[in-house]
Write a protein that binds this DNA or RNA. Structure first.
Lengths: 333, 333
DNA sequence: GCGGTCAATGAAAACGTTCTCAGTCACCTT
DNA sequence: AAGGTGACTGAGAACGTTTTCATTGACCGC
């Protein structure tokens, strides 16, 4: 088939070992190295990574397992991860689980079979729990979603604080009857719900919440159900951008004016949230930072396996836009 | 380290060959198979994919090399590709080149070293030309962007027709001075420009075009340059969603009303294009279909390597929205 | 009852690398 | 001049699988 290192060796008139050294790091005389390089060119040799990995017992690969590659949050993080890996001479295997725990399990197994050097993982709640009892043999860094207490290195947004900040902002703008819609598959949705609840309690306001699948259509249906079950709230807090889009769509379809009939606040500062009218108030997550820190944690654990578990908590940034303009006041922004 | 097939064999009291057969397809008695499975459980054995690939000489992996994983066009295609691969029991390696030919070359080499079964590729113009002289040894299917004539299987949008359809629509709506902004890194941008030129010629209208890097900021600057160089056109045709966003931003910043001061039409029916006010007229590409067809072409070529090269051309669907409402008329939607 | 077929199993080779080990040669020290 | 040092090189083992080949029985038809 394709040329192997032996073919190159024969062409260059040296031993396979010398070819390996000439291409790698070993000591080789300049003359032989030139011969080898010429032979490589002549034969069109490409090293076989499977053989290399088998022999050297290291894959030079890290696994990145996320819920949804269509979600700009994960693509943002993935870019930073890939960039860091590229700098370090590592490859990235990207896996897309679609929030499906079964698929997550399959990919986790696959990563082990690939003998990845380490993994970065955004687990569903189901998988997060399973990780506690069946930890993978390779270093794992969790992103976006908390794992079992004390278990793994992780880099997280301070979801409770961010959620509470949105509630405080809404209250300050004059809203009182604030409903919450949260994703149900991830620990993140749960945490954001808790922040919402705590802040509402602090203000002495009643909670009204629903948990949904993190999909646009689920949010449209969920919002419809919310309306059906009782009076329209003054504002809705939403735990991710897919749900935010769904609620926006549904409220548009219902002819609601934003924020006059309904204020809206959510997570993830995607481009489109600033382009719709009015702009949507969101908590911006530091995507690149999350990716970079995750890789840094992974590298450190690989370097010093014994170090205690570290959880890095990053803060979001509130981007205030017209969707939460002062209640009853002029539509700012 | 981790258990190997020999450990399992020892635990089960059989030979490594029998373990391999029990786990794979070979004929094994039910009793021994049960023993082996039990031993696998006991030892926590996970097959080593590097060894398997080396021995069996097939990677069970296909490479997907795209320009920008942050671009919803590519994530949409990637999803379909991954789904098809998953069904077929194949893995996908996803590579992100950022429209950088150097990085593209690196990843193409990497795919060969991984001994991928086949590749799906959206090349920049530079790489597309290089493919003609240095074709990879594995089957390649091109998507989104045409390669060298007659060279590779590919699945493409009928860009010229789609572009012309947008021009025709704009003309029908009463627009005459129509400018075009196109991406310069891909053959796609070029083709869309050609369709624009041809349609404008057909209508006897003058062409006014610029070629830009496919980035939001480049479009903002490009649009500013367009305005600086002469009178504001009545409409702008834009060759992809990043440029579309840039032009929308820039025209908002300049206080232009759409479509009264400037009509806008582009490519890719992303969610946000229907959520902004007014909605943007776009050509929708069949993302999932592109991914599926690409995989189908790849599979067929693997099955029957001798078949002649096939180019599948899919049509886009015009989604008409308010951004191209009739000139001077009421703002329809 | 006997050659022949067939399923099940094990021994050992092979996949393409890297790495250890031992060897060669040139050069330096004493 | 003998021994030591060091840089370079090749032979061969090893990585963990799959696969070929041979062997063993069991079973079949005659």
């Amino acid at each position: 088939m394709t040329a192997s290192i032996k073919d190159v060796a024969r062409a260059a008139g040296v031993s396979p070992a010398t070819v390996s050294r000439a291409l790698g790091k070993g000591p080789v005389s300049a003359a032989l190295r030139a011969q080898v390089l010429e032979a490589v060119r002549a034969t069109g040799y490409r090293p076989n990574l499977a053989a290399r990995r088998l022999r050297s017992q290291e894959s030079g690969t890290i696994g990145l397992v996320v819920a949804d590659i269509g979600n700009p949050f994960f693509t943002g993080v993935a870019r930073a991860v890939e960039e860091a890996a590229y700098q370090a001479g590592l490859r990235v295997i990207l896996c897309n689980t679609g929030e499906d725990p079964a698929r997550e399990a399959i990919y986790l197994r696959l990563m082990q079979e690939e003998r990845v050097t380490g993994m970065i993982l955004a687990p569903t709640r189901v998988t997060a729990e399973r990780l506690a009892t069946q930890p993978p043999e390779v270093p794992v860094v969790l992103i976006d979603r908390a794992g079992p207490p004390g278990g793994f290195d992780s880099v997280l947004l301070d979801n409770q604080a961010a959620s509470a900040a949105l509630v405080d902002h809404l209250v300050a703008q004059g809203y009182r009857r604030i409903a919450g819609l949260f994703g149900q598959t991830s620990g993140t949705g749960i945490e954001r719900a808790e922040g919402y609840r705590a802040a509402m309690a602090r203000h002495g306001l009643p909670v009204r919440e629903r948990f949904l699948l993190p999909q646009v259509v689920a949010a449209e249906q969920g919002f419809a159900a919310l309306r059906a079950e009782g009076p329209l709230p003054e504002a809705v807090l939403v735990s991710n951008s897919l749900l935010l889009m769904g609620v926006l769509r549904a409220s548009r379809a219902a002819g609601l004016r934003i924020p006059a009939d309904l204020a809206l606040a959510g997570f993830d500062n995607e481009d489109w949230t600033g382009l719709v009218e009015p702009g949507l108030t969101v908590v911006e997550q530091p995507l690149a930072e999350i990716g970079r820190v995750a890789m840094a944690l992974l590298f450190e654990r690989l370097r010093l396996p014994g170090t205690p578990v570290r959880k890095v908590m990053l803060s979001g940034r509130c981007v205030l836009r017209g969707s939460t303009a002062r209640r009853g006041g002029p539509e700012a922004d």
